[in-house]
């Protein structure tokens, strides 16, 4: 073997030792599921179906990117699904009101989007402040706000459904159904959010402090990190992610009710966990989270396409996947 080839091989080996199975595992799972899907029903691989699968993963995926930061600090946010529902409701009411003055214009839609972002950030701020200033477990606080947001949207909808004014719906529709260079817009937004998330997590001081806090609150405090401020910021970031998800969700159905976004918090948290981020904090895998969100979407799709398992068992299969994924991570670590 000549020298060049030898150093080349050494480089490959070095690269091999750098790849951690925890990082690659979720990506392999995505690939395996795609093979399985194709085997069960060849239509799985059709452009239309794949587009559908990835687009659907965008909602929980975007929320899960925010959740990666919260979980990275060792906390949790259970209120995201309810917050999305509340946000949707307020957006619809706001647009229905604005349309009387500004008509079915982009001004109306843009103003509602801005309101959504503001609401999301404010909701996150409230969660974060109550948790840090009140020194209450994040689980308890967000369990509380989960109920509050859910109840608020039901109240706004008077127990029924809030529907978006039809002309506005027509205008707003492409934000979910449209494409850019043949790529669905929700997918593009998901990718952008993931990229910004990865840069924030791995390339900024904020991200480093998030992981430091997750690694140890005490050591972070003794390293002059403003622990409370960083924690509040993660909740604000989570709220903004919820707002972005809401912005692309509203044009999908054009309505909101007490059951909007039901169970999203669990799907988002599960996507983070199967992506390889530890519940106790200190590590965070953005790419893993993306894969986690896609895995859930594929499973739902495969169940739809096959007759073997009733699609009503979707939740059961998801549950098994979560537990299985964590078991695999545990054993591969040891």
């Amino acid at each position: 073997m000549n020298q060049e080839a030898a150093t080349g091989w050494a480089k490959v080996k070095e690269l091999g030792s750098r790849i951690s199975w925890q990082d690659v595992g979720p990506l392999i799972a995505v690939f395996a599921l795609m093979v399985l899907g194709t085997a069960i029903n060849p239509t799985f691989l059709s452009m239309g179906n794949l587009t559908n699968v990835f687009t659907r993963s965008a909602f929980t995926g975007i929320i899960a990117i925010g959740a990666t930061f919260v979980i990275g600090t060792g906390s949790i946010d259970l209120s995201v699904g309810s917050m999305a529902a509340f946000n949707s409701g307020v957006m619809i009411i706001f647009m229905n009101y604005l349309v009387q003055h500004w008509g079915a214009t982009w001004a109306t839609v843009t103003a509602a989007m801005a309101l959504s972002l503001l609401l999301g950030a404010a909701g996150g701020l409230v969660n974060g402040l109550v948790i840090t200033k009140g020194r209450i477990e994040s689980f308890i606080v967000t369990l509380g706000t989960m109920g509050i947001f859910r109840s608020l949207v039901t109240y706004l909808a008077n127990g029924g459904t809030l529907s978006l004014n039809l002309p506005v719906r027509g205008l707003y529709r492409p934000v979910y159904y449209g494409t850019f260079l043949k790529i669905p817009i929700p997918l593009i937004i998901f990718c952008l959010v993931a990229m910004v998330g990865a840069v924030l997590m791995y390339k900024t001081r904020f991200g480093r402090y998030v992981l430091a806090i997750g690694s140890s609150y005490h050591v972070a405090h003794y390293s002059a990190i403003n622990v409370n401020r960083i924690r509040v910021l993660t909740y604000i970031l989570q709220g903004i992610c919820v707002a972005i998800a809401t912005i692309i969700y509203v044009p999908r159905l054009g309505s909101a009710s007490g059951t909007t976004g039901y169970g999203w918090e669990l799907e988002a948290i599960a996507a983070v966990i199967i992506g390889g981020t530890a519940m106790k904090g200190g590590t965070a895998k953005i790419l893993g989270t993306v894969a986690g969100a896609i895995i859930f979407s594929i499973i739902g799709n495969i169940l739809n396409l096959s007759d073997a398992i009733s699609q009503y068992l979707n939740g059961a299969v998801q549950g098994l996947i979560i537990i299985g994924a964590v078991l695999v991570q545990r054993t591969s670590k040891e």
């Binding site: 001081r205 480093r208 690694s215 140890s216 050591v219 003794y222 390293s223 990190i225 200190g282």
Partner: peptide, 19 residues
């Protein structure tokens, strides 16, 4: 308990005060 992030690698520990 308070000095070092024991579950993290060395570099982020050394630089945490001077990022």
């Amino acid at each position: 308990g308070k000095g070092l992030f024991t579950s993290m690698p060395l570099a982020p520990n050394v630089t945490i005060l001077s990022l």
